[in-house]
Each structure stands twice: as C-alpha cells, then as structure tokens.
Design a protein around this nucleic acid. Sequence first.
DNA 1: GTTCTTACA
DNA 2: TGTAAGTA
Length: 144
Amino acid sequence: MKEAKHKMHKPHFIHDIRIGIGDMCKITGVTGRQLRYWEERGYIKSLADEKNSARKYSWEMLYKVGSIKAFIDEGYTLAKAVEKSELREKEMAIIRKFMATNMHRVKITDEELLYGQIDLGKCEGKKIYGVVDEAGSHLEFGEE
DNA sequence: GTTCTTACA
DNA sequence: TGTAAGTA
C-alpha cells in the first residue's frame, strides 16, 4: 500500500492519457512517418495497443515529441533536437527538485504581466528572493 | 476511415 | 522524408 504511493493516480490524471498516432500528428505537427522513424531510432517510445498493433502515446511522449519538434523548427537536426530535448528535461527535473524544497512562497506582484517574487529561503542569514518584473528577472536580498 | 509495414523516389 | 500499395 505504501510502495505504490507515488503511483496512486486517479484515472483522469495526465499520466494515464493515451493518445493515438493520428491525434499526436494533429497536436504536434509531426507526421506519422516521422513518428515511426523516430521510434525506430529509439528517440521515442509507444505503447502497443492491446487489440490491434496501433501505437499509443503517453503524456510524456506527447510532451517530448512537441519538444523535439520545436527544436527542429528552430533549425536543429533530428539527432541534435533529441539531444537538446533530453538534456532540457533532465535540467528541468533538477530545477523541480530544487524548487520543491526551496520555493517557500511566490508572491504575485502583477497578475496581468505575470510578475512576482519567489521566496527562496535564507542563505547566511539573509532572505533571498527571485524577482520577476519589468526589468526581467534577478535575485534580491530581503531586508531584515 | 485509420494505422501498419514495406518499398521506392 | 513523402507517398503508394495492400492489409488488418
């Protein structure tokens, strides 16, 4: 009961989404020919449908295909696009881990422009804030 | 109608 | 990578 804790998703969660190749093409703009080739090269994976041999894709693959497609549209070759996509996903995983522990609170300063102040905790006694505003984004010390 | 594999341009 | 052919 406890080992499955992280797998206990409700049916409607995105992790249980299964997308057919047709929808994958419409959503990402990648052709079926490309999807089969990418899979053949080991860049992406698909789940074989129980009944026929039709492919089914997970939410993770939908995201990955979209990511690869974006890099290809930027001019990267398929191999480079996959490399960039996988690297970025790992970087994001690390960022999520960090934020899960260090992002104590986000104060929204402008809902329209999406500006805010992220409480990143303390470092050597000083409060640290990640600030996103009209100037872009930067770090600030909190006053104490 | 959709998807699959194979093969050719 | 696009497309055509013949299936399931």
